[in-house]
Amino acid sequence: MSEAYLQNEKRYNYTTPKSFLEQIDLYSKLLTDKTTQVKHNITRLENGLTKLTSTSEEVDGLKDVLAVQEVN
């Protein structure tokens, strides 16, 4: 990319220690944000699966009750 930048802009691309540290800091912040987002999504998925399981059990119970009521 530095060579393409030199060809197009006729300027060299330099990485200073400060800009390198800023890039590391930016990467660290992005990693933290993405990790938090993934953990939130995992929690949300687990809660949804728990609700689906409990709802399925309730539906099965209601089916049994309905079968008994239909017989009577």
Rank of each mutant, 00 (worst) to 15 (best):
M1Y: 01
M1L: 06
M1F: 09
S2I: 09
E3S: 06
E3G: 00
A4P: 00
A4W: 08
A4Q: 15
A4H: 02
Y5Q: 01
Y5K: 04
Y5M: 00
Y5N: 06
Y5E: 12
L6I: 03
L6G: 00
Q7L: 11
E9K: 12
K10V: 05
K10G: 02
K10W: 05
R11F: 05
Y12D: 07
N13D: 10
N13I: 12
T15M: 06
T15K: 05
T15S: 09
T16L: 01
T16G: 04
T16N: 03
T16M: 00
P17V: 04
K18D: 14
K18E: 12
K18Y: 08
S19E: 11
S19Q: 08
F20P: 00
E22A: 07
I24T: 09
I24C: 07
D25F: 02
L26G: 02
L26E: 15
Y27H: 08
Y27Q: 14
Y27M: 08
S28P: 01
S28G: 03
S28R: 03
K29Q: 13
K29S: 11
K29P: 00
K29D: 14
K29E: 11
L30K: 05
L31A: 05
L31R: 06
L31C: 11
T32P: 01
T32S: 12
D33F: 03
K34W: 03
K34F: 06
K34R: 13
T35G: 05
T35D: 12
T36H: 05
Q37Y: 10
V38D: 00
V38Q: 08
V38L: 09
V38M: 07
K39W: 09
H40D: 05
H40E: 14
H40F: 15
H40A: 15
N41K: 14
N41W: 03
N41Q: 13
I42K: 04
I42Y: 03
I42V: 14
I42W: 02
T43L: 14
T43P: 00
T43A: 08
R44S: 14
L45N: 05
L45Q: 10
L45W: 06
E46H: 08
N47H: 13
N47M: 11
G48Y: 05
G48W: 12
G48R: 10
G48A: 02
G48L: 10
G48K: 09
L49C: 11
L49Y: 06
T50P: 00
T50W: 08
T50C: 05
T50I: 01
T50L: 10
T50M: 09
L52R: 02
L52I: 08
T53P: 00
T53Y: 04
T53W: 00
T53A: 09
S54K: 04
S54E: 10
T55F: 00
T55W: 00
S56T: 04
E57C: 04
E57L: 04
E57A: 08
E57H: 02
E58C: 02
V59I: 15
G61Y: 01
L62P: 01
K63Y: 04
K63H: 08
K63R: 07
D64I: 05
D64A: 10
V65C: 07
V65T: 15
L66I: 13
L66C: 12
L66H: 14
L66Q: 03
L66G: 00
A67E: 15
A67P: 01
V68Y: 06
V68D: 15
V68L: 15
Q69F: 12
Q69I: 10
Q69N: 06
E70F: 09
E70Y: 11
N72F: 08
